[in-house]
Structures are given as C-alpha cells and as structure tokens.
C-alpha cells in the first residue's frame, strides 16, 4: 500500500470511494438503512451531487488530499485537509473526511492517511487540527478516539453530509475531535540501529 498526494486523475476513484464509504456508514447506523422518516442513503447523499461537489473541492486546489493506493491505480481510501468548515471552533484547520472502502476498514489504511494529513498540516505551520464526525457514526467516532482525538465540540445541522436532511427530527449532530498536538497523529519510521 502506498499513501501519496491525490492527483486530478484520481477524482473518479475518490468519488467512488466517497460514495461507497458514505453509504456503507449510513446503512450501518440506521436500522434497516432507513431513518425514522424513511430516508435512505440515496436521499441523504445524492450520489451525483456528492460526486460533483467533492470533485470540485479537490479540483480547484482549495484542499490538499492524499489517496491510499493498494496497487497502482487501485485507490481504497482518501483524506483531505483544509480550513475548518464550520468556523465555530478555535481551530483553523480540519482533516476533512477520511474515507476508506468498507472492505479495507479496520486496518492501517485510515491510520496512514491521518498521518499524511497531519504531516502536511505541520509542514504548513499548523500545530493542531480537528475533524468532524457524524455523531451516529459510531465506527468513525471509535476510530477517531483510537487515534487519540478528543471529542470537544458538538454542532447540529452543519456539514456536508447533513445538508440534505430536512429540518426537524432528521437533524443530525456532528462531533468535533481535536488533536492539540498534530504530531501525535504522525507515524514515524523507526530508525534502524
């Protein structure tokens, strides 16, 4: 496996990973894959719009992104970094999205991607970072805790994933995880003795 900066040619792969991962997560935290009012993943994350908006974010250089490539051309995960999206926290930068195909979750793919994003932020002079996670996405929250993230914020109806949710009982919350020391996320190679 290789972690490398995303290129424009990766956009279709990134869009595919994003869509599959998001739908998998949604089905995992909603009984029967439906919310109380019957919304399914397709209503929560319109595939076409998600593809285009994500491609747009990456395309014009507003973000940096890394992909995890299992074999040349086989992208199984990606993560982006950029400005903190909600502007409700004291943190300036955000690990925006960490997506790993379901069949590759639980391994080191996500860990290495987070390390790459944190390293890049450190290079850019940011000592801390944060990441928003949908509150219902228990697996993602566990993953962030496992990486040492501290749950410090909670907001409602903010963020990409919940944009399509109608107001009322379908409003979701996001939990903000913080790493005051971004270097804690960085995997360092052991020096050979």
């Amino acid at each position: 496996m290789r972690i490398r900066p995303a290129e424009r040619a990766d956009l279709p792969s990134i869009a595919r990973v994003f869509t599959q991962t998001t739908r998998h997560a949604f089905n995992a935290f909603t009984p029967g894959g439906r919310t109380e009012s019957g919304l399914g993943a397709e209503a929560m994350v319109p595939e076409g719009q998600a593809l285009i908006e994500f491609a747009w974010d990456l395309w014009w250089g507003q973000w940096f992104a890394y992909v995890a490539e299992l074999r040349p051309g086989e992208v199984v995960g990606f993560s982006c970094g950029g400005a903190e999206a909600t502007e409700t926290t004291e943190h300036r930068v955000q690990m925006r999205g960490l997506y790993v195909l379901p069949e590759h979750q639980g391994g080191l793919v996500g860990r290495f991607l987070a390390s790459a994003v944190a390293s890049r932020f450190l290079e850019l002079g940011h000592r801390s970072l944060m990441s928003w996670v949908l509150e219902q996405n228990v697996a993602a929250r566990d993953f962030h805790v496992g990486l040492g993230g501290e749950p410090r914020y909670r907001v409602e109806s903010v963020g990409y994933f919940v944009r399509e949710v109608p107001p009322g009982p379908e409003v979701h919350a996001l939990v903000g995880y913080v790493w005051d020391d971004a270097s804690a996320l960085v995997i360092r190679r052991r020096a050979r003795s």
Partner: peptide, 11 residues
C-alpha cells in the same frame, strides 16, 4: 478522460 466519468453523474 480525467473527468468524463463524472459527467452526467448529477442530472
């Protein structure tokens, strides 16, 4: 070829 698989994704 870099983007054409995205074209039409949102009707």
């Amino acid at each position: 070829p870099q983007v054409r698989s995205l074209i039409g994704a949102a009707p």
